[in-house]
Design a protein around this nucleic acid. Structure first.
Lengths: 243, 243
DNA sequence: CGGATACTTGAAAAGTCTCAATCCGCGTGG
DNA sequence: CCACGCGGATTGAGACTTTTCAAGTATCCG
């Protein structure tokens, strides 16, 4: 882990679909921040880089002092149960916020799936800043609502879809993140392992493999390697129930 | 459904556990609103009452013009899939907000489980009000974060817990809502049917019944009637994995 | 190139679903 | 007030999905 103070910082991009129709001038799928808001927000934060996969960024049960904005890479939020089982609650992609806390304590562990870079905001100062910048706070609010929707979609998938369909929905999801999906050849580079996918889908790794085999048999994808998949996007979406 | 303009309105109570430790003076588990904020917010809203169970409050796919605050009763959010399956995404209890929208359209259908009363806020005016009242907006933000946590807990339950445990967790949840749980006798009055519970837990109604039978056999509850349950709260929490 | 890890496959066991039949409880009308 | 009827709730049996455990194979990284 490296904390950097480099001058040349990436723009603050927060991904979110609004609850209401986007207003004119808004960049599709991203919150709109004015240059000065960008700058001030950026001043609150440090950039931190995690160079290796599986680096732990924050731990379930620890005091929560920071909110994180993922700039580059993929991060997973894991929740450990008493009996040792773990559920991957979410995968985060660039533009996502993470570091969910309850009563001052992190609810999940966040770890790097790939090497990654994050903005790290001290909670207290961020809270103060948001109070003084209602437009920005509204942006964070919209992002929170966006995340509620994602979480609900996931609940629906877990409750109603069988494993092959859940997997299909997951792959469609992954294909929405440009950095790992080459639209040209419909080639998806999965950053995470079968075990991670299994813990995300609430299934065993073996079942995930079997579900992959099924999707391949039905012509929804081709496995060029365990993590190199050619996706038949239309069929995949139709099958998963994702409209 | 009845829209009322009665002068004597209930207080606006929004239930939420904060992400950070509550500050002194905050009412435990509720957002803190000053009397004037209460009054102004109240002025934005209408009170609407739904006198019969199963009344539809808002419908999936319809244009979203209002955000709802549940004052009294129980409401469920149902999501219908293309193939006709339905998932109950959430049950709402007094103090909960509902009416989740995406791009101006409701994502779920909300219907009354019991007769109920709600505050109904026009989105646009509420949005404006929140921009002008950062403290209140922060409150709504905290509520949204609270709801993200609930949704994540649900994901974990769906992914990791078998049906009896999911049911136990659900019952523990229900027992947290005073109006339907008599702490004196540990007697829970379920407002919803087996089918509703099934669609909430992602299971069949028959399986839910069998799970009830199992919990009873193991001494975690007593069924006085299908919807009258004596809960052994400690054992139930221990079993469900709810700390 | 070798070793460790990740992935895949097979077979038996467990959990849940579906379908069908039955039972209960509550509100209605006689 | 009681009998009836209907929807909700329960129970049983067989089918199907997913898990678990065990073994084998591919892949990646040093």
């Amino acid at each position: 882990m490296t904390v950097s103070q480099r001058a040349n910082r990436p723009r603050i991009h927060i991904k979110a679909t609004p609850a209401w129709s986007p207003k004119q001038g808004e960049e599709a799928g991203h919150l709109m921040l004015s240059p000065s808001e960008q700058a001030e927000l950026g001043r609150l934060a440090e950039i931190v880089e995690y160079r290796t996969a599986k680096s732990e960024i924050l731990a379930q049960g620890e005091p929560a002092n920071f909110l994180y904005l993922l700039v580059d890479g993929v991060v997973q939020a894991c929740h450990a149960l008493k009996d040792g089982q773990r559920q991957i609650v979410a995968f985060y992609w660039p533009g996502d916020l993470f570091g969910l806390a309850e009563q001052g304590v992190y609810v999940n562990t966040a770890e790097a799936v790939t090497p990654c870079a994050v903005y790290r905001f001290p909670f207290r100062r961020l809270e103060q800043f948001l109070l003084e910048n209602p437009k920005v706070q509204q942006g964070f609010f919209v992002k929170a609502i966006h995340d509620i929707r994602s979480a609900q979609r996931r609940t629906i998938a877990m409750g109603q879809l069988d494993l092959p369909r859940r997997l299909a929905a997951f792959l469609v999801d992954c294909s929405g993140h440009g950095r790992y999906f080459d639209r040209e050849n419909a080639m998806l580079s999965l950053p995470m392992s079968r075990y991670d996918i299994a813990d995300y889908l609430g299934a065993s790794a073996e079942s995930v493999t079997r579900a992959f085999a099924l999707l391949e048999k039905n012509g929804l994808l081709l496995r060029w390697g365990p993590r190199k998949l050619e996706i038949k996007t239309e069929r995949m979406m139709a099958f998963s129930g994702t409209d």
